[in-house]
Amino acid sequence: MKSLAELAAIKAKMQDKVVIREGEGAIRVVVGMATCGIAAGARPVLSTFVEGVANNNLTSKVTVTQTGCIGICQYEPVVEIFEDGKEKVTYVKLDADKAKRIVEEHLVGGKVVNEYTIGEYKKI
């Protein structure tokens, strides 16, 4: 049975490990979560990124955040990935499966999944 008291234990555990989120190699994953994003299925995409980052022990390097309307509603769910010293990557029309691949190939492997980027999508 989960209880509020467990939070104290989680707190103690978290204070043991210092999380470094800034600095070299830091990656920021931003998921558009306005009406347009939510309607297009951004919530499972966000959950997939959050879980993927946790399962691959990337929490010290990658942060996953939400934002409002990015302005390209027709391409939602949209995810932007900002990496220090690199150009921003914009992924469009995502779903949970595509998000999973991005976690594995881009966040873990460091290789952009070209076919899901806005540049590729516009060519179709």
């Binding site: 509020l4 939070l7 104290a8 989680i10 707190k11 555990k13 978290m14 959050v50 980052v53």
Partner: peptide
Amino acid sequence: ILGDGVSLDALEIQM
């Protein structure tokens, strides 16, 4: 319980 040290968006807290 958590105090100021732990943000509510921490992964452990979300889980």
